[in-house]
């Protein structure tokens, strides 16, 4: 089993660390650009650098994620049921068939990765394949395919691009506002100015970070709805979510820790307990998702 491939050093509070890492990553990004600015590089260069960084993130992220999760691509003869489910959904959604991968872990989860409809991988863990009935699995895979249809990877990348750009504009105005006001007496104010630039950049970044998290939660609701629309069975997805979350709490900790780092890509966050503030969550709470699916089911039934 995959659990034997234990990974030391990923022990405590990994989710918190992931959050911190992402935050710091963005901070570094902003500080880096801020310093570039202070050194005297023109706005044009900074925007070029930002675009290059984002392009790298956009084109490289899915490959890195796929490799780090241990996704193994499976053929139709290895996983006939999963392939059949996805194929039918593709006919229904009018999509070309994506690559299909399996992650050998007992954690029940699923994820989709890819930049475009033509270049996508949908993955399911061994745990989810064993846990769910075909109809429930179909709901989960439809949720993942909806992420592909909605181009969530692109949307999130672009959204963070604008957040970065906003912070750069803030720096830009501050820098020139201060610069012109001070005339030639810059030398004395330079340090103060620099601090101010950084402070504003950090603030802008902090706010956009929370906004991006909120955006991510909204995209999850949208994917749930898309799944219900695609399969015509909102309650099947609701039942799948209940089953997954029920198992989540019972799965041995070692697997939980292993899977935690990949929370952002999955249909359910690895930890269902509300240990962090809702603001920081990239997935909405189970109760809210179930309530939304229940509304969809009653709409469906009400159409009679």
């Amino acid at each position: 089993m995959a659990a034997k491939r234990s990974n030391f050093g990923k022990d405590t509070g990994l989710q918190a660390r992931m959050l911190l890492t992402m935050f710091l990553l963005g901070l570094v990004y902003v500080v880096f650009l801020g310093v570039l600015f202070a050194v005297g590089a023109g706005a044009g260069i900074i925007i070029v650098v930002a675009v290059v960084l984002l392009a790298l993130q956009f084109f490289g992220s899915d490959k890195i994620a796929l490799a780090s999760m241990g996704v193994k691509e499976v053929s139709a003869s290895q996983e006939p049921e999963l392939h059949s489910i996805v194929e039918r959904l593709c006919v229904q959604a009018d999509l070309p068939k994506p690559k299909i991968g399996v992650i050998e872990t007992s954690m029940p989860n699923a994820c989709a990765m890819g930049k475009s409809k033509k270049n996508t991988t949908v993955c399911a863990t061994r745990g989810i394949l064993e846990l769910l009935s075909p109809a429930e699995l179909e709901g989960v895979m439809a949720h993942e395919l909806t992420h592909v249809i909605n181009r969530d990877v692109m949307v999130m990348t672009l959204a963070s691009f604008f957040a970065t750009l906003a912070s750069m504009i803030a720096q830009f105005t501050l820098f020139f506002g201060g610069g012109f006001g001070g005339g030639y007496g810059r030398g004395r104010d330079e340090e103060e100015e620099l601090m101010l630039i950084l402070l504003v950049s950090v603030l802008v970044y902090a706010i956009s970070f929370l906004l991006l998290r909120a955006l991510s939660r909204y995209r999850e609701f949208a994917a749930d709805r898309g799944s219900a629309v695609l399969t015509g069975r909102p309650s099947a997805l609701a039942s799948a979510l209940l089953k997954i979350s029920g198992t989540m709490e019972r799965v041995p900790t070692q697997d939980l820790r292993k899977a935690e780092s990949m929370s952002a890509f999955f249909i359910m966050p690895a930890r269902t307990k509300q240990s962090l503030m809702n603001l920081f969550a990239d997935h909405p709470s189970l109760e809210k998702r179930l309530a939304a699916l229940e509304r969809l089911e009653s709409q469906l039934q009400g159409a009679a």
Partner: peptide
Amino acid sequence: MGLRDILTGRHTVKG
């Protein structure tokens, strides 16, 4: 699927 559908994450099934 238009830009607006992508931005709102609203997906309708094709007939």
